[in-house]
C-alpha cells in the first residue's frame, strides 16, 4: 500500500499540520516490503542464482557433469564470445529476429484487423467470432504438418507459425477490450455530440488499449515459442539452426548459448512492451 501512494504529492495543508508523521511516512514510502530503498536491486535475490551457477561450474570441473551432457558455464561463456567474434551468432540472431519480426507484423495485421472488425461491428462479430473462437482451441503448434504441406520447408512455414501464434491472442484481447468499453462513457459521448468516428477513436479504442497490450505481451511470448519450434523444421540459418547443428557435434556449450540468446530476446521484447505500456497508459493514476 505504501508504494502506491509514494508518487502522490502531499497537499500543503497536510504537511503543515502534521509534519512529523508525514516525514516518518515518506521515509517509509521509499522502501518496499523487503525494506530496501526503491530503485536499488535487492542483492540478496542474486544469492541463489549465482550459487547455482557456481555449483554447476563446480560439478563440471569435478567431472561430475560431462561436457557432452552439459558444458560448464565458463565454456559456454567462452564459446558465446567466440561465436560473437566469428560473426555466426550475430548472423543467427539477425535471421531469427527478422523471422519473429516479419511473423509478428503479419500476425498483428491479421489479428488486429479481425479484432477490430468483430469488435466494432455486430455483423463482423457474428461472422468472424465463431470461426476464430473455434480455431483458437487448436494448439497452433499442431499445425506444423499442414504448414509444411502448404508452404514447404523454407521460410514460409516458420513465418506462418509465428503469425498464427501472434494473431490469436491479439484477436482475443483486442476483441474483449473493445467489448469492455464503459457504457457510461459511451452514453456521455453521445450526449456531448461525438460523431461515430469520435466515439470509436476517443472512447472505444482507448478503453481497449490495456487489454490489447496484455494480448500483445502474450503474443510476443507465443511468437518466440513458435519461432523456436518452427526453427526445428529444417532450418539452414538462425539460432535454431545453430542449436541443431551444435547438437550433431555434441557441442552442448553452443546449444546453451543459443538458448540464452532466445531467453534474452524474449526478455528484450517483453521489456519493450512494458516500456510501451508505461508510455501509452501514463494517464493511469500513479
Amino acid at each position: 500500500m505504501s508504494i502506491s501512494t509514494a508518487g502522490v504529492v502531499a497537499r500543503p495543508e497536510t504537511v503543515a499540520t502534521s509534519r512529523a508523521p508525514a516525514e516518518k511516512q515518506s521515509g517509509k514510502q521509499r522502501r518496499n516490503r523487503s525494506g530496501r530503498p526503491r530503485g536499488r536491486p535487492d542483492v540478496a535475490r542474486w544469492l541463489s542464482p549465482v550459487g547455482l551457477v557456481l555449483l554447476w561450474q563446480a560439478a563440471s570441473s569435478a567431472g561430475v557433469l560431462p561436457p557432452d551432457k552439459l558444458a560448464s558455464p565458463l565454456t559456454v561463456f567462452v564459446s558465446g564470445y567466440e561465436l560473437v567474434l566469428d560473426g555466426s551468432l550475430v548472423d543467427a540472431f539477425l535471421v531469427s529476429s527478422s523471422r519473429v519480426a516479419v511473423g509478428f507484423v503479419l500476425g498483428t495485421l491479421v489479428g488486429g484487423a479481425l479484432g477490430l472488425a468483430s469488435g466494432l461491428s455486430r455483423w463482423g462479430e457474428r461472422l468472424l467470432d465463431p470461426p476464430v473462437q473455434m480455431l483458437r482451441t487448436l494448439p497452433h503448434l499442431g499445425l506444423i504438418p499442414l504448414f509444411i504441406l502448404w508452404f514447404g520447408i523454407g521460410e514460409e512455414p516458420k513465418l506462418a507459425l509465428v503469425a498464427a501464434g501472434v494473431a490469436f491472442p491479439l484477436y482475443l484481447n483486442l476483441h474483449a477490450g473493445i467489448r469492455q468499453a464503459d457504457p457510461a462513457l459511451l452514453e456521455a459521448a453521445r450526449v456531448l455530440g461525438f460523431s461515430r468516428f469520435e466515439r470509436i477513436a476517443h472512447v472505444v479504442l482507448p478503453s481497449a488499449v490495456p487489454q490489447t497490450l496484455v494480448g500483445l505481451r502474450i503474443a510476443l511470448g507465443t511468437a518466440w515459442l513458435s519461432l523456436i519450434v518452427g526453427e526445428q523444421i529444417n532450418a539452414d540459418a538462425g539460432i535454431g539452426f545453430l542449436i541443431n547443428n551444435a547438437r550433431e557435434f555434441l557441442r552442448t556449450d553452443v546449444v546453451v548459448v543459443g538458448l540464452a540468446v532466445y531467453a534474452l530476446l524474449g526478455l528484450t521484447t517483453d521489456a519493450l512492451v512494458r516500456g510501451l505500456e508505461r508510455r501509452v497508459l501514463r494517464w493511469r493514476a500513479r
Partner: peptide
C-alpha cells in the same frame, strides 16, 4: 442539449482540456 452526470464521466485517457473540447 447538454448534460452533466452524477459521476463526471471524463475520458481518463484524454487530458482535461481534450475532455472539454472533444466533440
Amino acid at each position: 442539449v447538454s448534460m452533466a452526470f452524477q459521476q463526471p464521466r471524463l475520458l481518463p485517457w484524454r487530458r482535461v482540456w481534450r475532455n472539454i473540447s472533444l466533440g
